[in-house]
Nucleic acid binder design. Structure first.
Lengths: 122, 122
DNA sequence: ATGTTCCATCGTAATCCACCGATCAAGCAT
DNA sequence: ATGCTTGATCGGTGGATTACGATGGAACAT
């Protein structure tokens, strides 16, 4: 009873299952529209993005943007690599994968039917 | 190049695509371990759960629990149905479905490869 | 050394959040 | 009506977040 590969199957693969605290932390990091926007900006400029670039597209002070970036950094959602005089940021695909798994697991725990909706196209 | 049915396919089905604000709101609601726990409690006692029950398993004051419940309620993640002298709470599977879609869409926007990892088992 | 650019960090104000005890309305008894 | 239970909401406190401008250190130039 599982035609496609569902959320469930993605789940068991990463090492640590992620505790509620970790999940909550990441969720909180995702819990601000500006940070979602920052993530999208980073995603669109794959690996080529520094704080200034982000700031330019955001009508917010540089310090504020830097702070938001720090939140994402602390949550592990993005990575920093210093390069010369500036810092480049990029999305952590590893973490995103982990998150994907954890989130799938969470949903599954809450509502199995929802998490594997593929099986039930109605 | 897409054997199973991926996150992507789940996505296009709900009506409203959910704005960043909405997503952020829900994420923030999920951004506290106690609220995750409450959701799990509700899930385990399908539809039979009132505030007092939740409070009993949580070493927190009733008012605090009620407040957490309100956050989940406002985010649309759970539903209240008054019943006599008490209120029953249950998980909103509809909202969870929406969330699943929105989250999948978000991840896909951030990292297509991650969102549809099924195709790439390595 | 002097200057420039980039940006993390500090200091600060306003707002929000998490928690609590206390209160109060609603339902159901008696 | 009187009382009991349930739970939403109020008021308050302490700590976190969000925003800003200002500071300062690092990397590169000159």
């Amino acid at each position: 009873m599982s035609p496609g590969v569902s959320r469930a199957s993605i789940m068991r693969r990463q090492a640590a299952p992620m505790r509620d605290d970790d999940i909550a932390n990441i969720m909180r990091a995702l819990g601000h529209p500006v940070r979602l926007e920052i993530l999208r900006i980073l995603a669109s400029q794959q690996g080529q993005c520094c704080c200034g670039d982000v700031t330019e597209s955001l009508t917010l002070a540089q310090s504020t943007v830097s702070q938001h970036i720090k939140v994402l950094l602390d949550a592990g959602l993005i990575e920093r690599k210093a390069q010369g005089t500036r810092n480049r940021y990029c999305i952590s695909h590893d973490k995103l994968g982990e998150l994907n798994s954890a989130f799938g697991g969470l949903l599954e725990g809450l509502a199995p039917l929802v998490a594997s909706k593929e099986a039930e196209p109605a």
